[in-house]
Structures are given as C-alpha cells and as structure tokens.
Design a protein around this nucleic acid. Structure first.
Length: 635
DNA sequence: GCTGCGTACGCA
DNA sequence: CCAATGCGTACGCAGC
C-alpha cells in the first residue's frame, strides 16, 4: 500500500492510499480501532458545485491527528461501499464546513445528510463561535488553512493553492484541474489526507476552548441550524429556466442599447468610473462626492439625480436629464441584473431545474446567514422581474413569513425602554409613533421618513450627517429630531451608551443574551449596538427555524432571508400552512416585547408585486388592492 | 491565467 | 465630540 508522510508541527504524519482488498481491510480495521475517537472526514470531487450536472465525488478521506486514509471511490464500487459503510458505523466525525460534505455524501454516497449531521462536529462552527470575525476584520478567518496556521502549525500548507500549482504543471487550470488530476497523484493524495488531519487537530484544540468559554449549548444550537439550512439547500428552489433565458437576452439587448448611447459621449466602458467621471465633468456637470479612495464618485446616488430620476427611477422634473448619466445607470443595471442574477440562476441547475444555492447558516460576525451562488438574499425586490424566476412546483404556491420590524423590537426589548416597549405592546406603528412624539399629531410623510431614518440610525449606529444625507432633510432639523428621539426613548440612548462604554473600559467583546461572543473594534465602538441587535435578531430567527423543523415543516422551507422564510405549499393547504409557520415563528413575549410576524402568499412564483394575501399577526387574511386578480388560487 | 484592490450595487 | 450595520458578486485595472 502506498503511503505518504508529512510533518505537522514537527510530528510525522502518514497518509495511506488503499488499493487492494487487503488494503481496504486494513482501513476498516483502523476505523474500527479508532472509532472511540472523533474521526476527521473530508471529500474531494470534480468541483464545488455539488448539484451541477456532471459533478462527481472522487475521494473520501478519514483521519486522526497523525494518520489519514484517502479512499478513491470514483469508479470503484467496492471502495465506494467501504467508505459508505465506515461513515455509517463511525459514531462521531469532525468536518470543516460540514454542510458542504454532508450534501456531497448525501448526493454521491447515498448517505442521508441527517444521518451524518447527527454525528458531526463542524470545526468551522466552533471557530466562528470563538472568533466570528473574518480576516478582513482582524479575525483569524474561518477557512481550514488560516485556522490550521493559527491554531496548529504556522507552516501548515495551503493545500488548495498547492494543488492548483500542480494543476498548472499538468496543463490544467484552477477550474478544470479538480476533475482532471489523477486521484493517485502524490500531491493530491497528500493534501487530501492532510485536510482530515487538520480537521481532527482543530477539533482537539477548539473543542476544549468552546467548552471553557461556555459555548457548548450554542455549538449544539448552530449544528442544528446548519442541518436545517442544509436540508433547504438540498431541496433547492425551482427556477423557470425559459423565463430566465428570455430575461437574460432582453437584459442583454437593453444593456447594449444604453451602452451605445453612452459611447456617443466618449464612454466606451460603462464600468470604468474614471471614464464616466471624466466625461460627465467634460459635459459641465459638477461632481463633488468622492469615494473612500479619493476618486470622484459616480454611483447610482450621483447618477440618478443627474438623470433627473428619484431613487425609484421616476422623473423628478427638476432639471434637464443628463443623457450620459441616464445611459450609464440604465446600462449598468441591465448588465448587473443579467450577469449577477439571471445568468447566475441559469448555471448550476440540477436535472430538475432546481437551484441549490450555498446557504451559509453562520456567516457574519453577528452570526447572520448568507446565501451565495447565487446571492438569493439580494435579488432585486422592487418589481418582480428577477424574483419571479423562482417558482413553485406545479399545483403549489410560494409564500413568505417575516418578523415585523424585528430589529427595532429587539432594540426595545434589550434596552427595556419603557416608551418604546409600551408603544409596541399597544400595537402602534413605531415610525408613526416616533414622528408624533417628535413633531406632534400633525406630522407629515416627510416627518415620518425622518423619524424612521433616525430609528434606523439608532440600530445601525449612524449619526446626524448620514441621516441628513439619507432623508434630504437639513442637518439642523435632523439634529433636533435626534434630540427629540432621545428624549422620547431615553432607554435606547442609555443602552447604546452602556454597550459602547464596555468597549471604552477595555472589553474586547460583548456577550449577547444567547451567550454569543461579539467582538468589538476599538475604533468602531459605535457599531456595538448594531452587533448586539443584529445578532440577537438573527438568533431569534434561527430558533424559529429550529421550531419549524421540530414541527415537521422543513420540507416546505425554501430560503432564509434574514428575518423571513420563503416557503412553498400546495394550493389547497397554503393558508393553513402559512398560519402554522406564523404561529411557530411568533414570539409573544421577548423580554416583554411581542415579536410578531406577517405572512404573504404570492402565486406560482416568488413575485412580491402580485401578493394576493397578507396576514398580519393573528388578523384575518386580506387582499391588497393593487393585487392583480385572477391567479388560479383557491381561497 | 490569476490575484488584489477599489468601486459599485443588490438585499435585510 | 462622533461614527450607518451586515453580506456576495461583478467589473476595471494594475501587477504578477
């Protein structure tokens, strides 16, 4: 049997590559002998896109701190069965970024993800609980490589990078190499084994730290949340691919049309901010806003007013539109919608036209979730153009349930501000209430907008200037509004002051009511309130997902979108199901504040514009007047 | 061919 | 005194 050695912190490790039946027997004997330990597990395939047509599993690896085994399962039924058998038998496994491998093994090794999840410790979860910051924010990062270098061996190799240079030597590229490299290539085998050795060692280091810091319960919670999100990822979302391809070509035409318009003013590349800025200046426009890098800013905020358009792209009627600004914003939007959304939706579909986006259940420093490939949490919501590409199965409909103003409510709850808690308990519209407190009973729509933005400013840690910029209100007015807000809700101000004070007195982190560690940045202490609020709101939502799972509703869930869940149900029981999801997510008393939910039922597609039924709290279902009638939906 | 940075833009 | 938060993706451009 071939074996490969590698030194990790000066210690010899060995990776074995079983080839014969006897070798496989030696592997199963080893697995049996070591089954008292948690075994590191990893997989390698032809690419990361598990559900793309043609994706294949190549190897399954097992390892402890000193030994690893690389099983070449592709095209070898005996080895495939052995890997499967051992995974079924092992009582405990450690994976780094478990959901990826759960789904690979679910799809390609006929192992239900749930079976693996019940015995998994995900070292990425442990690492995130100990330091939620990415590398850009001064943290360690959450990849296997940076964690291994930090916690285990500063000289830990970047196995991915190392393999990619081998790909090049073999005449392949980063993307083609994974499928093409011989699975017995010494570098491939060595690195494949090494990943499990590091996962195993990471568990040895992180496990005790998680225990010491009292994070065990939170770790268990996160593993369950990860399982529910992985189940959603496995199910996928159905895409109307004919609609998507039609939309893609329409957007291409539109982008091209406006590109051509822009070129008449000397802008050959609409994405070049320099070209756009220079051309606008040459046309006599006065550009003042600058970017953090010092360049002239030519983003949407700058271009729309020049094109005499408001933020909703409607004519302002205050100036002659600058044709270049108009052409550039339109070309850029069409191009973005095409590439980031339409084309991204079309690629990676499985054989049933389902999209399986990566749902990262524990991502942001506040623990918020993210979705990538494609970014389905960020689909344009304005009109339904993009979102309606996501459709239900025939006979079913799409709906959503979201928490009403959850961040404001969590802020009220944690700060225990009496006025705000009471206003919420009374069922008041918080922004109306605030506007009335600041401006009196005759407040206008503009007043409400300022009040709303001041409220968001509290949640985000923003100041008077940014609120003035957002609302267009004069700075002095905004300052007065903030002062009135602080008089109305003194508890909010006190709460924020208390959190930032901890940082000023040297605290490096906050601990949230769920026990989560929230690292602080010394130079951005104003963000402390936001971290707390955003994180607790996320944990409420995540608990809601677990409650939905416990109620047996996971099969209906499609996507988590921060404070809302997108679901699917048959036309016949969608109302009943929506109400059950609502009941399950609603928290009647959260530190004295009700966390209410709102349900919406769309149609055959995820298309907010055609919302047909809305239910707020436990009120009856209503039909918005702007709803287009006539969709085949029984009530 | 790939990486890193700056910029921009979509959402909650 | 004061500070807008959190993500993922694409493009242009410089540099390897």
């Amino acid at each position: 049997m071939r074996s490969y050695s590698y030194r990790v912190v000066g210690e010899e490790t060995v990776t074995y590559l079983p080839e014969t039946a006897e070798d496989l027997e030696a592997f199963t004997t080893w697995a049996r002998r070591e089954s008292g330990r948690v075994i590191g597990v990893d997989t390698e395939g032809t690419g990361l896109d598990t559900y793309a047509r043609g994706n294949r599993l190549r190897t399954v690896q097992f390892g402890t701190a000193r030994e690893a085994w690389v099983l070449r399962v592709e095209g070898r039924p005996g080895t495939w069965a052995t890997a499967r058998d051992v995974l079924l038998r092992l009582p405990r496994i450690a994976l780094h970024n478990a959901p990826h491998d759960w789904l690979v093994l679910d799809r390609h090794l006929d192992l239900p993800m749930e079976v693996l999840a019940s015995k998994t410790t995900d070292t990425r979860i442990l690492a995130h609980l100990l330091d939620s910051r990415g590398r850009e924010d001064g943290g360690i990062g959450h990849g296997l490589k940076p964690l291994s270098q930090y916690y285990i061996d500063p000289d830990a190799p970047d196995t991915q990078d190392g393999l990619i240079s081998v790909f090049r030597e073999l005449g392949h590229t980063k993307s083609t190499g994974w499928a093409a490299i011989p699975s017995d290539h010494p570098v491939y085998v060595r690195y494949a084994g090494l990943d499990t050795i590091f996962a195993s060692r990471l568990l040895d280091v992180l496990g005790p730290q998680v225990h010491e810091r009292g994070l065990m319960r939170l770790a268990d919670f996160e593993h369950q949340v990860a399982r529910v999100c992985a189940a959603m990822e496995r199910r996928g979302v159905r895409v109307n691919s004919e609609y998507v391809s039609g939309m893609s070509s329409r957007l291409a035409t539109e982008a091209e049309h406006h590109r051509r318009r822009a070129s008449r003013y000397g802008v050959s590349t609409i994405g070049s901010t320099k070209q756009v800025a220079e051309a606008l200046v040459a046309m006599g426009e006065n550009l003042t806003a600058t970017t953090s890098g010092g360049a002239l800013q030519v983003d949407k905020d700058v271009l729309l007013p020049l094109a005499d358009l408001d933020p909703r792209w409607e004519r302002l009627g205050v100036r002659e539109p600058n044709p270049l600004a108009d052409a550039v914003v339109r070309a850029k939007r069409a191009a973005r919608w095409k590439t980031t959304y339409a084309d991204a939706m079309a690629s990676g579909l499985d054989e049933r036209s389902r999209l399986h986006p990566k749902i990262n259940s524990l991502q942001a420093r506040t623990a918020r979730m993210s979705i990538s490939k494609p970014p389905l949490q960020q689909l344009p919501a304005g009109d339904g153009t993009i979102r309606k590409a996501m459709v239900a199965e025939p006979g079913s409909v799409i709906g959503s349930v979201d928490y009403s103003a959850i961040e404001m409510r969590v802020l009220a709850a944690l700060s225990a501000d009496r006025a705000m808690v009471q206003a919420i308990r009374d069922g008041a519209d918080l922004h109306d209430f605030t506007a009335e407190q600041i401006y009196g009973p005759d407040f206008t729509k503009r007043h409400r907008k300022v009040a709303k933005t001041v409220g968001f400013g509290k949640v985000y840690g923003g100041g008077a200037e940014s609120i003035a910029l957002q609302t267009g209100a004069p700075l002095a007015d905004v300052r007065r509004a903030i002062a009135a807000y602080d008089r109305t809700f003194p508890g909010i101000k006190r709460y924020s002051a208390r959190l930032t004070a901890r940082g000023r007195y040297g605290a490096k982190e906050l601990i949230s009511p769920t026990g989560r560690i929230l690292p602080l940045d010394r130079t951005r202490l104003y963000a402390a309130t936001n971290y707390m609020i955003q994180s607790v709101a996320r944990d409420v939502f995540a608990q809601g997902l677990l409650d939905l799972d416990a109620a047996g509703l996971t099969e209906h869930l499609r996507l988590p979108v921060h404070d809302e869940v997108i679901f699917e149900a048959s036309e016949t029981d969608v109302f009943e199901l929506a109400e059950e999801i609502q009941r399950t997510l609603t928290v009647p008393e959260f530190y004295g504040v009700p966390l209410d939910t709102e349900a919406e039922i769309f149609g055959a597609a995820w298309e907010p514009d055609t919302t047909r039924y809305i239910r707020t709290g436990d009120q009856p279902w209503t039909t918005p007047q702007e709803t287009a009638p006539g969709l085949p939906l029984a009530s």
